[in-house]
Simulated assay, not measured.
Amino acid sequence: MNSRKEQLAAFNRLLDIMDDLREKCPWDKKQTLESLRHLTIEETYELADAILDNDLQEIKKELGDVLLHIVFYAKIGSEKNSFDIADVANTISDKLINRHPHIYGDVKVDNEEDVKRNWEKLKLKEGNTSVLEGVPKSLPAVVKASRIQEKVAGVGFDWEQPEQVWEKVQEELEELNEEIKAGNKENTEKEFGDVLFSMINYARFIDVNPENALEKTNKKFINRFQFLEKAAKDAGKDLSEMSLTEMDIYWEKSKTYFK
């Protein structure tokens, strides 16, 4: 691994390159905070994919792309005489020190849960009027539900046992089934949302990340379906003209390769 001196030199090299690009490259000169936003979101999802695939080389590459965006935003901030990369680093450093009084102060903690509770209390002292203020509105719904539940649990609004949460899941499923039978479309949607919310909450109690779990299932389904498509094509068959029984033969074979 590189020494701290080498790490700092590499970061300084990136800052120099960013200065050059901003001055000389027509595309880089044109970019704004707003124009970079959707690209940053895309890069973040690509990093998330690499993490789920546990591809360390790809993670390294995608981290570089994300780091470039951070440096890019800081460069634009410096041009506006608002902030630069040092301000960005110092701001997060100050926050980390303030939020970890058990490391940089005299607060005592016994476990991870104590740290989470202290974190939320400190945020309220810093001026937040709600523990939910820090949940971005544009987060995907599954991730947002997880963050909401984690944050309220941090101030003690939580179930005590996993069994209680599972009972809530069962209760919500029954309510959903009742609305489906009644044919009430609007209430069915509401109850379906309640089922998802309670399942996401249960995932937290059994130490499962629901976003990661669902995405892994998505990837598994894609791999199996693409296997089905290829197998049908190799057999000279048109997937759209095959019966479900025929397709199921290939689907079952796909499970041997993608579990």
Rank of each mutant, 00 (worst) to 15 (best):
A213K: 15
V135T: 02
E171I: 10
V143W: 07
D106P: 08
E133G: 05
R37M: 00
V135G: 01
I180E: 01
N98T: 03
F157K: 08
Y104W: 14
P26L: 08
S3T: 14
W27L: 11
G105K: 14
H100I: 03
A10H: 13
Q170M: 12
L96E: 06
E179V: 08
D114L: 07
E120P: 03
N184V: 09
N223Q: 11
V169T: 03
E229Q: 15
E246I: 05
F157S: 04
L21S: 00
D55F: 09
A50V: 01
L196R: 15
E160M: 11
T256D: 13
L124R: 11
L47W: 10
K80M: 09
N187V: 02
N90V: 00
D110V: 04
F197I: 13
K144R: 13
G156H: 13
D110H: 10
H102I: 00
S254G: 12
I92V: 13
L176K: 05
E62Y: 11
I249K: 13
P136L: 01
V109D: 05
Q57C: 05
D16Q: 11
L14Y: 09
I76E: 02
L63R: 04
A203M: 12
F227G: 02
A74F: 01
S240E: 12
D20H: 07
I59S: 01
F225H: 14
A74D: 01
G154W: 12
K121Y: 12
S3Y: 11
V195P: 01
I97E: 06
K233L: 07
M199H: 07
G77I: 00
S3K: 10
L176G: 04
G64Q: 03
I92N: 05
F192S: 12
Y250M: 04
K230L: 07
I148D: 04
E133R: 03
N187S: 08
I148C: 07
K216V: 02
K30Q: 00
N201R: 15
D87E: 09
T32M: 01
R99Y: 12
W166F: 15
L214F: 12
E34R: 02
H38M: 06
V155Y: 10
M1T: 06
A235V: 05
E246R: 06
G183W: 12
D110I: 01
N218Q: 13
E189F: 12
E150F: 15
F197Q: 14
A182K: 15
T91P: 08
E171S: 15
N184G: 10
